Amino acid sequence: MTRAALIVSMLAAAALLAACSEKPQTVSSTHKKSDSVAWQGAPGDPFVAKGWTAGDKDSWQRQIHQRNQYQNEYNRTQ
């Protein structure tokens, strides 16, 4: 009986200590602000679409239109 109580108490202690190891969830300083306009984008990001320059509203609108046309099923079936 004492061995079972020891095992249970050690498991309870391990569960309590595991809860203390959670890392704080804070926003990093490199996070993009959500209050900026969409076409400002992320300068220096290697994953931006080709033909789009950050800060140019017209090229951003053309890129969004082109992306939407690739998702249009009517255009894809013809």
Rank of each mutant, 00 (worst) to 15 (best):
R3T: 11
R3Y: 10
R3V: 11
A4V: 14
A5P: 04
A5L: 15
L6N: 14
L6E: 15
L6W: 14
I7C: 07
I7V: 14
V8M: 13
V8N: 11
V8R: 14
V8E: 12
S9P: 11
S9N: 14
M10A: 10
M10S: 09
A12R: 12
A12V: 14
A13N: 05
A13W: 04
A13T: 12
A14W: 03
A14F: 05
A15H: 01
A15C: 06
A15Y: 09
L16I: 12
A18M: 04
A18H: 07
A18T: 07
A18K: 05
A19I: 13
C20N: 12
S21Y: 10
E22K: 14
E22G: 14
E22P: 08
P24E: 14
P24G: 10
Q25C: 14
Q25I: 15
T26R: 14
V27C: 09
S28F: 09
S29D: 00
T30W: 01
T30Q: 03
K32H: 07
K32D: 03
K33H: 08
S34C: 13
S34I: 10
S34F: 08
S34P: 03
V37F: 02
W39T: 06
W39K: 07
Q40L: 13
Q40I: 11
G41F: 01
G41Y: 00
G41H: 07
A42F: 05
P43C: 06
P43T: 06
G44T: 00
D45N: 09
D45M: 03
P46Y: 08
F47D: 04
F47M: 03
F47C: 06
V48D: 00
V48G: 02
A49C: 05
K50Y: 01
K50M: 02
K50H: 03
W52G: 00
T53S: 01
T53E: 06
A54D: 11
A54L: 08
G55D: 04
D56S: 03
K57I: 08
K57S: 04
K57R: 13
D58N: 11
D58W: 04
S59D: 00
W60K: 02
W60G: 00
Q61N: 15
Q61T: 15
Q61Y: 14
R62I: 07
R62T: 10
Q63A: 04
Q63W: 01
Q63C: 03
Q63R: 02
I64K: 13
I64C: 09
I64M: 13
H65C: 05
Q66Y: 06
R67P: 00
N68Y: 06
Q69A: 06
Q69K: 10
Q71I: 02
Q71S: 06
Q71P: 00
Q71H: 06
N72A: 02
Y74D: 04
N75F: 15
N75E: 11
R76A: 11
T77Q: 09
T77L: 05
T77P: 00
T77D: 02
